[in-house]
């Protein structure tokens, strides 16, 4: 199975280990991985800030870059960027610079084969247990875009359930945004501060020593706040968790484990 990594600008610029862990997990599970060279960004930073005209070239570049390598699937380490890429066919309806509809046509193809990392493992590869082990008490931060725009509410919880030694604690107010919101965190930093403060309080209340999420943006925000407060908190992307202390003999398919319960609201 040929998999292209949709790296995201944030992972490229800031968090290389997220990509490394992701590649190692995917290869272990039998994927042939490649990284399309000219890809940069999904376009959210400008698009969501209202710079829509400036965003069409960003999306075009992304479509060109990701289409350049033949692959079965595209896998991304961020729920938010995945969600936007999947929304491209809706967004490009307003694109004035695509007279032939060529970008739209390719956007539809890309959209259909793009998955967020954890949902790819569970829903496409059919893997329930990556064989990982992590001795820690952790809680999970659900990103808004992954939950609501991508509609993925379950796979991270299910995968984490099968990590050996990992004790998961429920996070109060899990439905509330951490205050990242891209340029919102900078432009409206006064409101963002109130939001991330509240998120940090709820995380501390769980007694967890580790915070896990599927979105590097949220982790940079919440982790940056913990760092500002000088408080110790282990911040981990799910790829790092699933690549921790792996014993390949423990890897299990969905059919080999009990069916997990659907995620309750919120």
């Amino acid at each position: 199975m040929k998999v292209s990594i949709f790296t995201t600008c944030m992972m490229d610029l800031m968090f290389p280990h997220v990509g490394k862990n992701m590649v190692e997990v995917l290869e272990r599970l039998g994927c042939t991985v490649d990284v399309p060279d000219d890809q940069i960004c999904c376009g959210q930073p400008t698009f969501n800030s209202g710079y829509v005209e400036a965003s069409w070239p960003v999306m075009h570049n992304q479509i060109d870059a990701l289409s350049a390598i033949d692959c079965d699937y595209i896998v991304c380490p961020a729920g938010s960027c995945t969600a936007i890429l999947k929304e491209y066919p809706e967004l490009l309806v307003d694109d004035p610079n695509d007279p032939t509809g060529d970008y739209m046509a390719r956007a539809k193809i890309l959209s259909a084969k793009t998955y967020e990392f954890s949902q790819f493992i569970w829903r496409v590869l059919g893997i329930a247990d990556c064989g990982a082990e992590l001795d820690t008490v952790a809680t999970y931060h659900r990103s808004c875009h992954m939950t609501r725009l991508l509609g993925e509410r379950e796979t991270p919880f299910w995968l984490l359930e099968n990590v050996k030694g990992l004790e998961m604690r429920q996070l109060d107010g899990i439905q509330y945004c951490c205050g990242f919101g891209g340029t919102f965190s900078v432009k409206e930093h006064e409101i963002s501060e109130l939001m991330v403060t509240s998120k940090v309080e709820n995380i501390e209340k769980t007694g967890a020593e580790t915070l896990i999420s599927c979105d590097p943006g949220c982790l940079m925000n919440i982790g940056g706040r913990f760092n500002r407060l000088g408080k110790p908190m282990k911040i981990m992307h799910i790829a790092e968790v699933l690549n921790h202390n792996v014993d390949e003999s423990r890897i299990k398919k969905i059919s080999e484990v009990a069916t997990p319960a659907p995620a309750p609201f919120p």
Binding site: I5, T7, M11, D12, L13, M14, F15, P16, V18, G19, K20, V23, V35, S185, V186, K187, H189, S192, E193, V196, M220, N221, G224, R225, N227, R228
Partner: peptide, 23 residues
């Protein structure tokens, strides 16, 4: 500055540590 008014910002890694270079 808007970011760092509220929280710390990681210094971007050295180019030799980048994901693309590693890959």
């Amino acid at each position: 500055g808007g970011w760092t008014d509220v929280r710390d910002l990681p210094v971007p890694p050295k180019h030799r540590d980048d994901f693309r270079v590693w890959f």
